[in-house]
Design a protein around this nucleic acid. Structure first.
Lengths: 114, 114
DNA sequence: CCACGAGTCAACCATTTGGTTGAATGCGAT
DNA sequence: ATCGCATTCAACCAAATGGTTGACTCGTGG
């Protein structure tokens, strides 16, 4: 078995993967603003606590949540820092938005026309 | 079988999922700037053409590439528009970056101190 | 102490994913 | 017509995913 260390690429993998599930994105919204316990988080979802626990593990591996055990409870809060990297990755493609692309092409054609 | 239409949520699902694979992110870089044919795209990757073709299908379903058949060739170019939605989704969490969070907490504590 | 509630772990299952290979399709050039 | 190249399709496979249930661990309140 290959030891998987956290290259920038694999970190992006895990962040984007964590965000590719609407339940997990919803959980992130739930815990943004106010930290919540695992059971509290589970309430709105019609799935077992264990399933929610798994989703939390995926989010944790991606670094998107922080957990703090206080007594019997486990408080979960959002950690948006890894999203920054994802957002920066996306930002590279701003120049390829439809409108901008059109603009660029117009400018290029003007330039090539002399 | 349930007919899956494109709700905003499922569109984000497919975009984030498409981006969760480093080969696919790499392909997007490859075709940004200059459009390429499928075979051209496949060159740098040590996997079959069919595998690359599948990756392209995933990217296409997410709306991240556009294909144009010209003769025997199929030209692929990036379409960054769906990334905009993903980026906006991420932008909501800017307020939860570490530094900002710290700042917010300081402000809150000042306010609560009266 | 001990019973309960919070949460995780383990085993299991169906589906999806990411890859393979080989056959099929479709277009262009000879 | 047909050969050859570009690409996809179909069948298959192993591994990962997202869910279940039931047993387990561990604090806390009585």
């Amino acid at each position: 078995m290959v030891r998987r260390v956290s290259t920038p690429s694999s970190r992006l993998d895990s962040v984007f993967h964590a965000l590719s599930d609407s339940t997990r994105r919803s959980i992130l919204r739930d815990v943004s603003g106010r930290e919540k316990t695992v059971s509290e988080i589970a309430v709105p979802y019609q799935m077992s606590l264990a399933a929610v626990s798994k989703h939390l593990k995926v989010l944790e591996r991606a670094g998107l949540i922080l957990r703090e055990k206080r007594g019997a409870f486990q408080f979960v809060q959002v950690n948006a820092k890894p999203m920054q990297e994802a957002k920066q990755w996306l930002a590279f493609y701003e120049q390829f938005w439809d409108e901008r692309l059109e603009l660029l092409q117009q400018q290029l054609s003007k330039m090539s026309k002399k």
